[in-house]
Design a protein around this nucleic acid. Structure first.
Lengths: 107, 107
DNA sequence: GCCTCTCCTATCGCTTATCGATATGAGAGT
DNA sequence: ACTCTCATATCGATAAGCGATAGGAGAGGC
């Protein structure tokens, strides 16, 4: 049983949302996404880390090295102000698209 | 950083849905998608035709040449049986994902 | 007849996101 | 020592969508 693939474009949104609930290191983001989507989304490292780097590059996240709960070296990410704005923008965008498609399917 | 209009993966779903309401030629599909999404989605030819070809290749659509309402040569597409199954599958999949993300954003 | 507008299909090149596999390192447990 | 797990990272492949562009053919004005 393959886990459902992501819709492209939703990963950023989920990462932003996950981090809006507090700073996390990379794998923590992956876990929180699994939690808040009730296991519907499984994000592998090959998707996660490039996305985090891209988003930090875009100025939406900032990072610093620290220690995880298991005393492992880990990079902690948190939202910047532009990141919060981006979350709002993407959440709105998602809502619009989601309603449009739901409406189309109902018709 | 360009915003893509569509969420990747939703184009197939919209095309399948559009054709489930009756056969259409290419540009007709584009128009019907605009209608049923209340103008939320504009599908240009550079997205539309490759998608139609891909989906015909996949066996979801069949096509035949005919004449449009304006007496123009046009290729009419209709759903095959596998295409209808695919529509059901993708619609279900969309609903699941959509609910999962909506839930995640609410939290 | 001729010109232009619109309709209709088609393709090329480019960008970008995601995924599977793989690599590396270090603390934890035995 | 050895292995398991945590944690970050990167590479190559795949694929979708988009802008631009092209070309053919009927419609309608003149």
């Amino acid at each position: 049983m393959k886990k459902t693939n992501l819709l492209q474009g939703t990963l950023d949104l989920l990462i932003l949302k996950a981090l809006s609930m507090g700073p996390l290191h990379g794998l923590g983001v992956s876990l929180r996404i699994r939690q808040i989507t009730n296991g519907a989304f499984e994000v592998g490292p090959g998707s996660l880390f490039p996305a985090l780097h891209r988003m930090e590059e875009a100025g939406w996240l900032s990072s610093e090295w620290g220690e995880s709960e298991n005393n492992r070296r880990a990079k902690f990410y948190q939202l910047t102000k532009p990141g919060r704005r981006q979350l709002e923008t993407e959440a709105k965008h998602w809502t619009l698209i989601s309603l449009a498609i739901a409406g189309a399917l109902k018709a």
